[in-house]
Amino acid sequence: MAENQRKIDRRKFVGDGLRIVGAVGIAGATGFWAGRRAEDDDNLWQIDPHQCVACGNCATHCVLDKSAVVCKHAYAMCGYCNLCTGYFEPDANELTTGAENQLCPTGAIRRTFIEDPYYEYAIDEPLCIGCGKCVKGCTAFGNGSLYLQIDQDRCMHCNECAIAIACPSEAIKRVPAGKPYLPKDQNGGPA
């Protein structure tokens, strides 16, 4: 009986010891990580428009059926061209809003006449699928005022962004919650 008692005591001692070590270890590690984390503790995914090459992967690789990536327009950078290379097909028959002339596969860009010879272009975000065709056209031949961004309201904040894996130019990076977007007209040139 005494033998048995000792055995139980020993097991209890070892168990308690391991528990204490475990609890102290976990608490210590938490403190370490908490102390090590950066100022702004939140991480959201965002596209750096200066690194983006508008390859089209954003439209197809997001885990959402309709990608969380949408096109944004930096109006202050836009040339308001009549012949917008982000809006029109390269071999457009006419410079009109006819669907056959448009580059956008979903007709998500609205073209409005402002004053001769200027037209304003606006993105109808619910229609935009983030394919980046307009971005490519605008960046290659225009001012590059159209650019892709992750809509933070719809992003699932996956632990590993599926588009980031597929991105050819590593343009998708984590940004702090305090600065969830990287607008093209507000942050510097190519990184």
């Binding site: 200066h50 040339g79 590059g144």
Partner: peptide
């Protein structure tokens, strides 16, 4: 490859 201002943004009178 980058957005240079090939077409300077216009200065609108009333927009």
């Amino acid at each position: 490859a980058y957005g240079v201002e090939r077409f300077p943004p216009p200065e609108f009178t009333n927009h």
